[in-house]
Design a binder for these strands. Structure first.
Lengths: 188, 188
DNA sequence: TGTCATAACGAACATTCGTTAGGCAAAAAT
DNA sequence: ATTTTTGCCTAACGAATGTTCGTTATGACA
């Protein structure tokens, strides 16, 4: 990917984040890039490529992250901590792309959407493995594994709705808080 | 609101849920309603009215719910349980509208969007009050109140991404699981 | 019987959509 | 020095967008 193409991709991600994929026009992207709409097509195949790349590049980052965590021989609590940390880091380091990844994957074409959902399931599976490990190791209480993994991921994913790079909480503080919350809960 | 208008609103909500507000055309709605596009305008002022009604009717339901909970004199744990229960019930009973409420409020016009955000903040505040109560009562550990409320709401809101009315989990089972998780965490 | 409201219609509106065609100047490669 | 590639341009395409128009069939009420 050329430098220019990458720049265009990032500009697009910023706009997609702001207004959503469907509500962002090619003309919007061109304007932000300081170029005529037609000129974009010297770099990209079409609008959908920008969405596609964003979704799948993020999916790959997340998947690689969880696989690395699950390959290490630690106890489940440590693994969970690492998984949360990795997730929050990817997310805050690519906040624009992360929002698109979360919100707009639905607008992928049918084929790619199916592929995307599979990757997503694989990622969720990584979290289920950790929770199951924790139960087997006697570290976690015997919760519904699927449900627990989903709930943890909820908290992680919602970050994109409120995270502010200029806010007072750093990525690792957020991650620490989140791990604490999912591990210990509110109870004193 | 006439019967016909309500029917159109619900049809629209179903489509908005499926494809998103922006990606749903007036012609799509008309087709689903079995009517010509122009005929819709005998009932509604425009496409945006459908979004507006959906967002604000849901906001009102949520706000009323949390206010009722916070008006009752119970301890924080019980209040939290009730708040979670109410939230899950509203959400599962109006799943189409809930998805739109969560996902597409961004496409309200500027004025209405501001009003909407205010209502949302008021709702979040309701949860913050509960968490703060819990700390004051010595029931909850001394967490970051804002962060905790946000994390609880994350889990609640994410339900719309996976809830299946025909699934095996009932609304009250989901609510019970969620309360348990936020209160106790994973730790054994 | 005449009047009015309702809910639908087909046709058309101006605008915006994503995309393509063809050309032109500057830079890079040969 | 000549060719090729790059990056942009203007112009235009057909399709889709939300909405407005004047009209009409139906049925309730005076």
């Amino acid at each position: 990917m050329t430098e220019r193409k990458l720049a265009i991709l990032q500009i697009a991600q910023g706009l997609f984040m702001e207004k959503g994929y469907t509500a962002t026009s090619v003309r919007d992207i061109a304007k932000s890039a300081g170029v005529e709409p037609a000129s974009l097509y010297s770099h990209i195949n079409g609008k959908e490529e920008l969405l596609d790349r964003t979704c799948f590049e993020m999916a790959e980052k997340f998947l690689t992250g969880i696989e690395e965590v699950n390959d290490i021989y630690f106890d489940a609590a440590q693994k969970l901590k690492m998984a949360v940390d990795t997730h929050v880091n990817i997310l805050t380091n690519h906040i624009d792309a992360a929002v698109v990844f979360q919100r707009d994957w639905r607008h992928l074409n049918e084929v790619r959407r199916s592929e995307f959902i599979e990757l997503r399931n694989a990622y969720e599976d990584g979290f289920r493995v950790i929770v199951q490990n924790g139960i087997d190791e006697g570290l976690f209480s015997e919760v519904d594994v699927k449900f627990a993994a989903l709930t943890i991921l909820s908290s992680l994913n919602w970050i994109v709705e409120w995270y502010d790079p200029k806010g007072k909480l750093t990525a690792s503080e957020i991650a620490a808080n989140l791990f604490n919350f999912t591990f210990t809960g509110l109870k004193k």
